[in-house]
């Protein structure tokens, strides 16, 4: 899923200089599961903003509403009443949701409440780690199901660099060396020989380097 972290309330509040009615829109999918922008988190943000304005003796009304998803038009529709009422909207969805809501409700302004960070998963309670970069050309079949594009700091394709030590990456002791993990995994899978194969330069055109991407499915198309 998409993992995001919360922007500082201050950073958000500094953009709400002259507004009197603010609508905080939560998203009930990925960012709810990673505790960044779901119903509770957007309520917390609304409460914090109310206090902020109270301290400044500014009369500001805040409404909060969370929809199932902000990345599909049908769900965003439900926000209409509260957004029409507001002067400005803060969306605690991922960047996709913010863009969709902004497009749908022009000319109302929609601000991001989160920093959308990566595609990943929780590895233990309160810890989320990156797992996929969406490069568009999956190599997990060659690397024992561990992605070096997303999990190696240098997205190497030919094994660990000289900075791999005690299973950790040279950039931080908090980051596991993806290639140590791949090495261990291939050993378990009996595929260690593949570590001696030269992986040729990657075709990055399927990744973001090829420009914004789109997928068209004729079978789904109406």
């Amino acid at each position: 899923m998409i993992i995001a972290s919360q922007k500082s309330v201050r950073e958000i509040a500094d953009n709400l200089t002259k507004h009197k009615r603010i609508s905080v829109a939560g998203c009930g999918t990925c960012v709810a599961v990673c505790f960044a922008g779901g119903e509770r988190e957007s309520e917390i943000l609304a409460s914090a903003l109310r206090m902020f304005f109270k301290l400044k003796s500014r009369k500001v009304e805040i409404r909060q509403q969370t929809v199932k998803r902000q990345c599909e038009w049908e769900f965003i529709e439900e926000l209409k009443e509260n957004i029409d009422w507001a002067d400005i909207v803060v969306s605690t969805a991922c960047g996709i949701g913010v863009q969709a809501v902004q497009k749908k409700y022009l000319p109302k302004r929609v601000l991001p409440g989160l920093n959308t960070s990566f595609m990943g998963m929780p590895t233990s309670p309160g810890v989320w780690k990156e797992r996929c970069l969406g490069c568009g050309d999956c190599v997990l079949d060659e690397t024992g199901g561990i992605c070096p594009i997303a999990r190696c700091a240098k997205n190497l394709l030919n094994g660990p660099c000289g900075g791999s030590q005690n299973g950790k990456c040279e950039i931080s002791k908090d980051i596991d060396c993806a290639w140590q993990e791949i090495y261990d995994r291939l050993k378990v899978l009996g595929l260690l020989d593949s570590m001696n194969e030269i992986a040729l330069p990657k075709n990055w055109s399927t990744s973001r380097d090829g420009g914004p991407r789109r997928i068209v499915r004729e079978d789904v198309n109406t």
Binding site: L156, N158, G162, I171, P201
Partner: peptide, 28 residues
């Protein structure tokens, strides 16, 4: 060489490339 990660350098906010890795560079 692959190269040290920019995190250690004087421009830690820069974007890195790593289009090739050292082995792919050797072959090139």
């Amino acid at each position: 060489l692959t190269g040290d990660h920019q995190k250690f350098g004087n421009h830690p906010e820069s974007k890195n490339v790593f289009d090739l890795d050292s082995i792919q560079l050797l072959k090139t």
